[in-house]
């Protein structure tokens, strides 16, 4: 079970929403907290916050962090096979950024009192969720391009919204992440266009990859507003500022034309531009499949978790060795680098 520290004490992160706290003092603090959010101010780690706010943030940020780290795998598998030196460099840099984003996000979650050890343990024990999209396979090089455009595109739509959120450390991490994600979309689009404007075989590769990734990209925004239990609370406290369906629509409006204008198709017979609303109409993903993948029954859930567990186990001796060495040398380390930092 996840726990977090508050005033030096370890407190379990409740699996259910905490019982409503009551009393005039609580009401006053809550009013103050909500007024602060209404004024557009950020909440910082040491501020008072409703336990439900803390719980929702830990849930969301740790899931987001896990998604970045697990998300290194489907694309990372193509690093050894990248077809040019430039593509190889770009892909290493991109997957590296995902690790970097995971690192920033775990840290943002840690400011709420939960430790990275605990979050990683929960992931490896199969108790934590991460984005369903990373449980889909990447059978060809074109999948890297399709992910780069569609999945990263969807991620940016989502993250630009999260960067406006009320929790300071999360919003700050998002700001930097969005900046780096703009490189990801550029590289994805570049690789995508290279294939879409290439030989017939390359065009076929990218079309098939688009067919595979279109619905996962739509799933990235989470369940339909009809079924999203968290959304009303998240909106009230500005953890999110738009609903899943609003974001999904934004994504389709922006990205469907980018694919179509290259003469490719999207796997949705209902997709069409509606001049009256100025939006694209589209079919929702198969929600039955979505819930199955969330439950662990997606095509690659087991493979992804096995890869994470193996890396974790194979790295354990390294983490332990450095911790042991540091403990022995706690008072050493006079290499002259400390002087100026004391200014």
């Amino acid at each position: 079970m996840l726990t977090y520290r508050i005033h030096g004490q370890m407190v379990p992160v409740p699996e259910q929403a905490p019982p409503p706290q009551e009393g005039p003092e609580y009401e006053a603090r809550l009013a103050e907290f909500e007024a602060r959010i209404a004024r557009g101010e950020k909440i910082e780690p040491t501020d008072w916050m409703p336990e439900e706010y803390r719980r929702q943030l830990i849930r969301m940020i740790s899931q987001h962090a896990h998604s970045e780290v697990v998300g290194m795998l489907p694309e990372g598998r193509w690093i050894p096979h990248a077809p040019t030196l430039r593509r190889k460099l770009i892909l290493i840099a991109k997957v590296q950024d995902e690790g970097g984003h995971g690192q920033l996000l775990y840290r943002a979650a840690e400011t709420l009192g939960v430790t990275r050890e605990e979050m990683i343990e929960a992931l490896l024990a199969g108790k934590a969720k991460y984005s369903v999209v990373f449980n889909y396979p990447t059978p060809t090089w074109a999948d890297v391009a399709a992910i780069g455009l569609l999945i990263d595109g969807a991620a940016v739509v989502n993250q630009l919204m999260l960067a406006q959120g009320s929790y300071g450390p999360y919003a700050r991490a998002m700001k930097r992440i969005c900046y780096e994600e703009s490189f990801h979309i550029k590289q994805g689009y570049d690789a995508f266009v290279a294939l879409a404007t290439g030989t017939p075989a390359q065009r076929q590769m990218i079309q098939e990859a688009v067919n595979r990734w279109w619905y996962p990209a739509l799933m990235l925004f989470g369940p339909s507003d009809r079924d999203s239990v968290h959304t009303p609370t998240l909106l009230r406290w500005r953890i999110k500022t738009k609903t899943n369906d609003e974001l999904r629509q934004e994504f389709v409006d922006q990205y469907a034309p980018m694919v179509l204008r290259l003469g490719l198709t999207l796997p949705d017979p209902n997709l069409r531009y509606d001049p009256e609303t100025g939006h694209w109409r589209f079919s929702e993903p198969d929600w039955e499949e979505f819930w199955q993948v969330i439950k662990g029954n997606g095509p690659c859930n087991a493979e992804r978790m096995a890869a994470r567990r193996r890396a974790h186990e194979e790295g354990r001796w390294v983490r332990e060795a450095l911790a042991a060495k540091a403990a022995r040398q706690a008072n050493g380390g006079g290499d002259g680098r400390y002087a100026m930092a004391s200014l």
Partner: peptide, 12 residues
């Protein structure tokens, strides 16, 4: 580059 995504700790 074969370590990317598999190293002992994120920072490494």
């Amino acid at each position: 580059s074969e370590w990317v995504g598999h190293a002992p700790i994120l920072e490494a």
